[in-house]
Amino acid sequence: MSTSTVAPIAGLGEVPNHAYGVRFDDLGRAFPVAGGESRQVLRDVELEVEPGEILAILGPSGCGKSTLLRIAGGLDAPTSGSVTIDGAPVDRYDARCAVGFQEPRLLPWRSVAANIALGLPRGTAKADGRAVVERLIELVGLAEFADHRPREISGGMAQRTSLARALARNPGVLLLDEPFGALDALTRLKMQDLLLDVHAAAPTTVLLVTHDVDEALQLADRIILLGNDGGAPGADIRQTVVVPGHRPRDRGSAELAELRGRLLDGLGIDRHGSARGVEVTKTIPHYPY
């Protein structure tokens, strides 16, 4: 997946390239549980995402990362506060967003190409749609598998199809819920580069939920760390980290390694070296770990 694959997406459809800002305003979400009680998952989330920004949402599992993303896409609604895209409130299943789910969620009876076409905005002319799908298939490297069914391709290919489907929507906000979580390490790195290529060519706003600190550091302009401070129930933003440097970033950079340690700290993972009194050397790159 070299940067040469960027070119095809540049002329993606007739729709002008757009990116919207997203604003979470004092947002909270509580889920009802048995016995008429409710469980607070998110509280007081105050966040402004700039148009074109890549924001990574980190946090321990079950802290409400996905819920926050689903609320941004109108797949779920907040119990308090509000969320707006480009200044307007989010609709149910908001058409300005496209979602890349944790699982590929492809229609098993449709070919790869037809699954990607599902993402096209409604009212796309047939010829335009075909051209967009063709370019996206090329971009995600599945040209030879266009006519295959989802069960005939590997998990990584299915996840790429799912990403292409989301891109076909030419979204103002791209919501990715641990899209590479289920992939093997190598495929994951390739997918991350692919996402950066796509973003470089068509810089949309991206909200990326992940549990992988390295992935967040590699992809994001900014990282927020969700978590609970042990006081009131529900998670809020514990830390905001602006990632230095321009993408693509050197996966072995010492600066990122330092940030990585701080983020892991925030997730409650101690840095084994310093915890055991091992002196940290700056001369030897820490990657691969």
Partner: peptide, 13 residues
């Protein structure tokens, strides 16, 4: 349900 949700997210209803 996941398929239905995905399809809804892509504007089908």
């Amino acid at each position: 349900r996941q398929l239905i949700e995905a399809a809804r997210a892509f504007g089908l209803h």
